[in-house]
Design a protein around this nucleic acid. Structure first.
Length: 139
DNA sequence: GCCAACGTTGGC
DNA sequence: GCCAACGTTGGC
């Protein structure tokens, strides 16, 4: 199973908002970037991803799961844009700040560090395991 | 709130 | 098909 990372501004749609959706989950709509969209097309049901708070917070706060594979984005009348549906799985016991990721030599290759503008991105298994450990959360 | 980095758009 | 102009993202 592949691992991913999703960014969202907590002021717009944060971890708590996803948790509040419960089993209904939520469409990860609004992505208007081809790279990010292509990653969503690669996602399989059951894949897991980190939920990262961008702009404010700047930390990984939870783990979500892909509930439905990529489908047209219902918020725009343009067939180019697709999105997956996600659902909250569990929060991080201890959120992992961007700062801690940037200063960890084993995580400096992460897209989160190298390309801060990509809002949906893949995460390597080794990175996943390490970050879970840093957050005192089971992978 | 600023602004650097990046992606997209559109005139030529 | 180049590239200037513009819009957006996100760390600071």
């Amino acid at each position: 199973m592949a691992k991913w990372l999703f960014k969202s501004e907590p002021d717009v749609f944060g971890w708590d908002d996803l948790v509040a959706k419960g089993n209904a989950g939520e469409e990860w709509d609004g992505v208007r970037n081809y790279q990010a969209r292509n990653f969503m097309r690669d996602m399989a049901v059951g894949d897991e991803g980190f939920f990262y708070h961008s702009r404010s917070g700047l930390e990984i706060v939870g783990i979500l799961v892909i509930k439905n594979a990529a489908h047209p984005d219902s918020t725009i009348d343009d067939a180019r844009w697709e999105c997956v549906d996600v659902q909250a799985v569990r929060p991080f016991a201890k959120p992992v700040p961007l700062d801690a990721i940037k200063t960890n030599p084993d995580l400096t290759d992460m897209i989160l560090v190298k390309n801060s503008r990509l809002s949906v991105q893949p995460v390597k298994d080794t990175e996943w395991d390490l970050i879970c450990r840093m957050g005192h959360t089971k992978p």
